[in-house]
């Protein structure tokens, strides 16, 4: 993730006398960063990431030297997306507990993919499900002719897939087989 940030994406806090304008600007930067970062390494351009992880990722990749932003600023900036006409990304709360940055249909999309995997192959744990999803993402990855070097995959994380699985349990789509070795997920058969 230590990519060189693109020069047009660096917003120096000092250039803003007004907090409001600053937040608008970083909202645009965050939006661009997220869309570029996940563009061709998530299945069909879906983004779904806990804001906590995004906070670390964004500050590390973009804001070194121009002043880190605070968690509150990140949250405020993301809340400005609709106002700024940045409609592909929004904040959603997964399972009423994890705030995530997400593209509009990403949640439904992943849920469907998980269901597909578990219909074919019941009894997988979160590691295996995440791994399978990421392999699928790699298969569908577009290979640009010019860009032969594959990018490091900012793939689905176990924690976000775990959250989606949790939500599938809450809404009754999936059931679990809980053993000491871990939790195995099945499509609901009851």
């Amino acid at each position: 993730l230590n990519k060189q940030p693109q020069s047009n994406l660096i917003i120096d806090r000092d250039k803003f006398s007004n907090q409001d304008l600053f937040l608008d600007e970083i909202a645009r930067e965050i939006y661009d960063f997220a869309m570029i970062e996940f563009k061709d390494n998530e299945i069909n351009n879906n983004v779904l990431i806990p804001l906590v992880d995004f906070y670390a990722m964004y500050n590390k990749a973009m804001r070194i030297g121009t002043g880190l932003i605070s968690p509150q600023e990140l949250k405020d900036a993301c809340q400005r997306f609709p106002k700024l006409g940045l409609d592909d990304l929004k904040l959603i709360k997964l399972n009423k507990r994890i705030l995530c940055l997400a593209t509009t249909n990403s949640f439904d999309f992943i849920q469907k993919e998980i269901l597909k995997i578990l219909t074919k192959d019941g009894g997988l744990d979160v590691l295996k499900i995440t791994q399978t999803l990421n392999e699928m993402a790699n298969d569908t990855e577009k290979t640009d002719n010019d860009e032969t070097v594959k990018r490091q995959n900012a793939a689905w994380t176990v924690s976000i897939i775990g959250e989606i699985l949790q939500s599938c349990i809450d809404n009754g789509i999936l059931v679990i087989d809980e053993q000491m070795s871990g939790v195995y997920y099945f499509k609901n058969n009851f």
Binding site: D125, L127, V158, Q179, M180, S181, G182
Partner: peptide, 8 residues
Amino acid sequence: QPNKSIRN
């Protein structure tokens, strides 16, 4: 360890 992620 019986738990798979711990065991890894």
